[in-house]
C-alpha cells in the first residue's frame, strides 16, 4: 500500500508535449503598460484567446477606446482602429455595415462607454448593430488619476470625491448594463469579472458567446467585465480584488442579464 509516489523532476515535466497553458500568439510581445495587477491584461488575453480559438484573426477588427486601454492596439495582434473618445460604437457600426463578414468588437472603459459615449452606446444598442461591445468597468477614471466616474459607488472615495461619493450631490452610480438590457436591439447582455480563476473561465465563455452570436447575425452582444483599479482605488492588487468582491460586486452582481429566448 505504502507505494512511493513517483516524484517527477522539473526537467521531466517542462517539456513541449506537457505544455497546457501558454500566452496566446495573438498577444504581441510588448509588455502591458497597465499597473501591476490590473484586470485589463486578463480581459485583453481572454478576447485574443477567443479570437484564436475561433480562428478569425484575419476577420476580427477591434476598436480601441480612450482611457487606460487606449493602447490596446499595441497588444492585440489583429486589425485595430482607434476611436475618438466614446465614439467606438459609432465606428463599429460603420465598419460592420461596410464589411459585414468581419467580426467587429469595441473595447471600452467606463469613462468612455458610460460617460462621454453614453449616446453612442445607447443608440448602437437600440439599433441592434451586429457587433460586440466589451465594457470594462472599474468604477473610476483610472488613466487621468482616479477621478469619480458615473459608475463610482456611493461613499466610494476618489480624487474628486475625497469624502466619498455623495448621492444627493453627485447622483447615483450608473448601471448602464441593466439599462441597455432593456433595449430591444440587444441580444445578449451579461456581466462578468476576472479576479478569480472561476470568474475568468465564465468571462471567457461569455466573450466566446458574443463572437458566436455575431457570426449568427443575432444583434448586439454587450459583455461587461468588472475589473479592479488598484492604483485608482489606492490599494494593493490582492486587496483591491478582495475589496471588489465585498463592495463592488454586490452593487454590480455578476451573471447574465439578458439571454436569448429559447425556442
Amino acid at each position: 500500500m505504502a507505494e512511493q509516489q513517483q516524484q517527477l523532476t522539473s526537467e521531466d515535466i517542462i517539456q513541449e508535449e506537457n505544455l497546457v497553458f501558454d500566452r496566446t500568439q495573438l498577444l504581441t510581445d510588448n509588455v502591458f503598460h497597465y499597473c501591476p495587477g490590473c484586470g485589463h491584461g486578463v480581459a485583453h488575453r481572454l478576447i485574443m484567446e477567443v479570437v484564436e480559438e475561433l480562428e478569425v484573426q484575419d476577420k476580427a477588427i477591434g476598436i480601441a477606446p480612450v482611457g487606460c486601454s487606449v493602447l490596446a492596439y499595441n497588444y492585440m495582434d489583429i486589425d485595430m482602429q482607434e476611436a475618438a473618445h466614446g465614439r467606438a460604437p459609432a465606428l463599429a457600426t460603420g465598419i460592420k455595415r461596410t464589411m459585414p463578414d468581419k467580426y467587429v468588437f469595441t473595447y471600452q472603459g467606463d469613462g468612455d462607454l458610460a460617460a462621454i459615449g453614453t449616446a453612442e452606446t445607447i443608440h448602437a444598442c437600440n439599433r441592434g448593430e451586429n457587433v460586440a461591445i466589451f465594457f470594462i468597468n472599474n468604477g473610476i477614471y483610472g488613466m487621468t488619476g482616479g477621478q469619480m466616474a458615473p459608475t463610482t459607488l456611493e461613499k466610494m472615495k476618489s480624487s474628486t470625491t475625497p469624502y466619498g461619493r455623495n448621492i444627493k450631490q453627485m447622483g447615483n452610480p450608473l448601471k448602464i448594463t441593466e439599462l441597455v438590457a432593456e433595449l430591444p436591439g440587444t441580444y445578449y447582455v451579461t456581466r462578468q469579472a476576472v479576479h478569480k480563476p472561476g470568474a475568468v473561465r465564465k468571462a471567457k465563455k461569455a466573450i466566446k458567446k458574443a463572437f458566436e452570436y455575431q457570426k449568427l447575425e443575432k444583434g448586439l452582444s454587450f459583455v461587461e467585465i468588472v475589473i479592479n483599479c488598484n492604483s485608482g482605488w489606492k490599494m494593493e492588487p490582492v486587496d483591491a480584488n478582495k475589496w471588489m468582491d465585498e463592495n463592488f460586486l454586490p452593487y454590480y452582481p455578476l451573471g447574465d442579464i439578458k439571454v436569448p429566448e429559447k425556442k
Binding site: E3, Q4, Q5, Q6, Q7, L8, D12, I13, I14, Q15, N18, L19, V20, F21, D22, R23, T24, L27, V31, F32, Y34, P36, G37, C38, G39, H40, G41, V42, R45, V194, H195, K196, P197, V200, R201
Partner: peptide, 19 residues
C-alpha cells in the same frame, strides 16, 4: 495562476506521474 495573471507571463506544464 495563469488564468488570473494580468500580464500573461505564466506558462503551465502538466504531466501524469505513474506510481
Amino acid at each position: 495562476c495563469a488564468l488570473v495573471c494580468p500580464d500573461a507571463v505564466i506558462q503551465v506544464y502538466r504531466k501524469k506521474a505513474t506510481a
